[in-house]
Amino acid sequence: MSSKPAPVPPTPAQTVGPFYGYALPFPGGPDIAPAGHPDTLTVHGHVYDGAGAPVPDALLEIWQPGPDGDRTGAPGSLRKDPVTGGHAGRDGVTFTGFGRVATDADGRWAVRTLPPAGAPYLSVCVFARGLLHHLFTRVYLPGPAADTDPLLASLPPERRATLLATGTGPRTLRFDVRLQGPEETVFLDFR
């Protein structure tokens, strides 16, 4: 028998609601790649509800390893200006591994980042009005590493397809999040 104490019960989740817009998004939130980096990859898409309608009040967060495989991240995603209290923005050099983007009125989002090393995916956390508890998913970048990924391999082909980004142009990939319906995105549970 283990002597580990019983886990402390968690604080329940609640919806992000409709009015996070002036509190959570920040300038440069979608710009994870250092300014002007030649390897920058644009990942973009829509968030759709169960009726196929775009979701204009969703918030996506991205977490990923650096291009060197580093998973410790770095501060400086939000950087405040200590003099004015305004946003100084990212320093244009540091790769923090973290991004945040709200969908626009058409339910559209886009982030610019560098391809991660050591894992073929970007981790995504989805928040929205109407969603009582956030959802985790992954944007898999097509390539040999995705072809041998155990999670992707465990899914039937039509489900697997919901996690794979598709090329729409040079260094540009599309990934839609479907909260519900026949093409519903695969969401993940880590507990």
Partner: peptide
Amino acid sequence: LRHPHRPPVAVHDPEAVELTGP
């Protein structure tokens, strides 16, 4: 219209990126 109908897929990978964070 904003909740998935399918249960989430459980991930038990000790190498999962999500076990680290920003």
